[in-house]
Amino acid sequence: MLPLFSEHSLVLRGPYLEKMTDAEFFDFCQQHPELRIERTANHEIVLMSPTGSRSGKRNARLNGQLYMWWMQHRALGEVFDSNSGFTLPDGSIFSPDASWVSAAKWNALTTEQQDKFAPVCPEFVVELKSATDSTKTLQAKMFDWLRNGAQLAWLLVPETEAAYLYRPGQPEPELVQGFDHELSGEAVLPGFRLRLAELR
Rank of each mutant, 00 (worst) to 15 (best):
M1G: 07
M1E: 13
S6V: 13
S6G: 04
E7N: 14
E7K: 14
S9I: 09
S9A: 15
L10R: 09
L10V: 14
R13M: 12
P15E: 12
Y16H: 11
K19M: 14
K19N: 08
K19I: 10
E24N: 09
E24Y: 11
F25Q: 03
F26P: 03
F26I: 00
D27K: 10
C29V: 08
P33M: 02
P33N: 07
E34R: 02
I37F: 00
R39F: 10
N42W: 05
V46I: 15
V46D: 05
L47Y: 07
M48E: 10
S49I: 08
S53G: 11
S53E: 11
S53Y: 14
S55V: 02
S55K: 04
R61C: 00
R61S: 08
R61K: 15
L62A: 07
Q65A: 10
W69E: 05
M71E: 13
H73P: 02
R74G: 06
R74Q: 14
A75D: 10
V79F: 01
F80I: 01
D81S: 00
N83P: 02
S84G: 10
S84E: 01
G85K: 00
D90Q: 13
G91T: 10
S92P: 05
I93Y: 04
P96K: 00
P96G: 00
A98L: 05
A98C: 06
A98W: 00
V101D: 02
S102G: 11
S102L: 08
A103H: 13
A104G: 06
K105T: 10
T110C: 13
T111E: 14
T111R: 15
Q113C: 04
D115M: 10
D115R: 12
F117G: 02
F117Q: 00
A118D: 06
A118H: 08
P122R: 03
E123L: 07
E123F: 02
E123I: 03
V125K: 00
E127M: 00
L128D: 10
L128Y: 05
D133V: 03
S134C: 07
T135D: 08
T135K: 05
T135V: 14
L138E: 11
Q139F: 11
Q139L: 08
A140I: 04
W145T: 03
W145F: 11
L146Q: 14
R147D: 12
R147C: 12
G149K: 09
G149M: 11
G149T: 07
L152N: 06
W154K: 02
L155F: 11
T160D: 12
A162V: 09
R167C: 12
P168R: 08
G169F: 05
Q170F: 08
Q170A: 15
Q170C: 12
P171L: 06
P171M: 07
P171A: 08
G178E: 12
G178C: 05
F179V: 01
D180F: 12
E182I: 13
L183M: 15
L183E: 13
S184M: 12
G185Y: 09
A187K: 14
G191F: 02
G191V: 01
L194N: 01
R195N: 13
L196K: 01
A197G: 08
L199C: 01
